[in-house]
């Protein structure tokens, strides 16, 4: 058994400190916003210029100018603020965010990650990811453990064009929580029923 997306999001929530400020990337990470208990007092930042994202709006409060980085409608909590993109990335680059959560295509033992293009096939662009991986105090990669072909996305060395080199602190995959340690992955925790030899990672790459 591996973790569902919701269970992965809950694992990420357990890594966050009360009162911290975090950025959530496009795609699966936006789910984390819906799993954070409000009593943790966490402020969610979105690079398009807002701090203090709350849950989804209602039909009455929905606004075309109130969206997250995934262009999805959101609402804001009390104490929220709006600002321009340069200030928004100043918050990121300046080290003012406690954590960021990014979706990734590949991550390796050195903590390098790839998430913005597959040469000749697909280009999404890096958006804010290249800034986020250097600016935030804790970079968390969130991903389904396996590709559609069943190969581990946790690899010895990324083959895809990098988003950042040696920047990931923690990996939360559908199979467990890991830390890149330079030459190996440290297994922090495995999802219930998942064993070391089911990870699709060469055993000599596991601590």
């Amino acid at each position: 058994m591996s973790w569902s997306k919701e269970e992965m999001a809950d694992q990420i929530v357990s890594l966050l400190s009360p009162g911290s400020s975090i950025n959530l990337g496009i795609g699966m990470p936006t789910l984390v916003a819906e799993r954070i208990p409000s009593e943790l007092g966490i402020f969610i930042h979105s690079e398009n210029g807002l701090l203090g994202i709350d849950g989804r709006p209602t039909k009455n409060t929905v606004s075309a100018t109130l969206i997250n980085a995934g262009k999805e409608t959101v609402s804001v909590r009390q104490g929220a603020s709006f600002f321009d993109s340069a200030l928004s990335f100043g918050m990121i680059r300046g080290g003012h965010l406690d954590a960021c959560v990014l979706g990734v295509m590949e991550v390796d033992v050195e903590g390098s990650l790839a998430n913005w293009m597959i040469p000749g096939k697909k280009v999404t662009g890096m958006g804010g990811a290249m800034d986020l991986v250097h600016g935030s105090k804790n970079t968390i990669a969130m991903l389904n453990h396996f590709t559609k072909k069943g190969q581990s996305k946790l690899v010895k060395k990324c083959a895809l064009p990098l988003t950042g080199q040696k920047v990931v602190d923690t990996i939360v995959s559908s199979c467990g929580v890991f830390r890149p340690r330079g030459e190996k992955f440290e297994i922090v925790k495995l999802a219930p029923g998942v064993s070391k030899d089911e990870l699709g990672i060469e055993q000599n790459l596991l601590e």
Partner: peptide
């Protein structure tokens, strides 16, 4: 972009705004 009809410079978003 993939067809080479538009020349695209992709810039990290924080670098772009700065």
């Amino acid at each position: 972009m993939l067809a080479g009809e538009v020349e695209v410079e992709l810039v990290p978003q924080g670098t772009f705004s700065e």
